[in-house]
Design a protein around this nucleic acid. Structure first.
Lengths: 205, 205
DNA sequence: TGTACATCAGTGAACGCGCGTTCACTGATGTAC
DNA sequence: TGTACATCAGTGAACGCGCGTTCACTGATGTAC
């Protein structure tokens, strides 16, 4: 850590980083503005030069998380093209990868209790992330005979729910709950079975 | 509310109820011992006649939740007999029904951060609930040809993850996240597709 | 039935703590001339 | 290049608050005789 004088130079980013680290360690609850300030080497009052308050700081962390999340999902979606199936599976994997690589962001986004409608900015970027998953689902559902095709939003909701469940129950080292399988495998196989159920993957192994 | 004198008569239960109500309203975080005491019409200090402290009160709420949960799961399992499939589907529905009917308990159990290994009692009752789901999965998996049969624990983990995900994302009126479908339907169809993927349900509608 | 007494389940005052937030302030930086 | 000055980004002290927990206490209840 380089010495610094009276001015920090990069305090806003440093505060977000500190917040993410604290959220990751202690949950969305354990996080305090004062502690984040302390970790950034600054007085609590200094935070108010950059944020409106505690909530605003968390919201900014979540916003940055959604930004990265949406980018990752888009990249994954592209990387699977032109196969709708490959694209879909890649977004599933990207979801889990994001949760593991950016746990602080993930918690800020999904467990901190801040509303996605807090600001238009936040709502937009969250919608962008959601649209990628929905697009992947729509592409894929076109391979299902129309009359037995479930709505794509339902379909993406299923995958999202399973992904989130795996993260919450098995990827986080949940207190006292041992994971029976590596979360990656769990999600991979789960999605595989689900897609077979939709007739999108050959029934045979 | 009947008048009461110096002695409450039923304080322990009243405190648990108050805690559940507060947890439901404000999340596992918003809950405070003092407020629970107040709601039960009692001094904060009185709580210590019945509990070791704040954490202990939450743990008791969670324990009671697991008790009800395990009972419900067992009942659902039995009610589907002798069809392994019916039994399995019933436990899935029971999961969601529990989460909706006992949101305070659900949060205390799965989101409050208290470890299931906090006390042997708590660990036991949690294990009992888990065993029901696993048993239902095992029964069902016997209908799958042995060589392509996934381990029953994996299978129950998938269902658990999807159920939990549906609860967290769509059943709770998550701030700013609208549910695209009724959660019951979402879970029902999700499990249906998953089971079809396992070849346990005819591929046709 | 009455009384003495142990036990139980509350009270209320006090504690130390860390929190988020506010305020007047001041040191550092950048810019105009 | 030097100087005056506006602007910016911090400080540090203070605030009021509600928290969990402790303690000596006291009112109510139940039981033995």
């Amino acid at each position: 850590m380089p010495k610094r004088g009276y001015h920090h130079g990069n305090l806003k980013a440093a505060l977000v980083d500190a917040a993410l680290q604290l959220i990751e360690q202690k949950g969305p609850t354990g996080f305090t503005l004062s502690e984040a300030a302390k970790q950034a080497g600054v007085t609590p009052a200094a935070v108010y030069r950059h944020f409106e308050g505690r909530e605003d700081l968390i919201a900014e962390a979540a916003r940055q998380g959604y930004e990265v999340f949406a980018d990752l999902m888009e990249y994954a979606y592209q990387s699977g093209q032109p196969s709708a199936l490959a694209a879909f599976e890649a977004t599933g994997r990207a979801y889990l990868a994001f949760a593991r690589k950016y746990p602080g962001h993930y918690i800020a986004m999904f467990e901190s209790g801040i509303s996605v409608n807090r600001t238009p900015e936040l709502a937009n970027v969250a919608a962008r992330a959601n649209e990628v998953l929905e697009k992947a689902a729509t592409d894929l559902s076109e391979h299902i005979p129309e009359e037995k095709r479930p709505p794509a939003t339902m379909f993406s909701a299923h995958i999202w729910a399973m992904s989130h469940g795996v993260v919450e129950l098995f990827a986080r080292n949940s207190p006292g709950r041992a994971s029976p399988f590596p979360p990656d495998d769990l999600l991979e196989t789960g999605i595989g079975i689900y897609l077979r159920g939709l007739g999108l993957v050959p029934p045979d192994k």
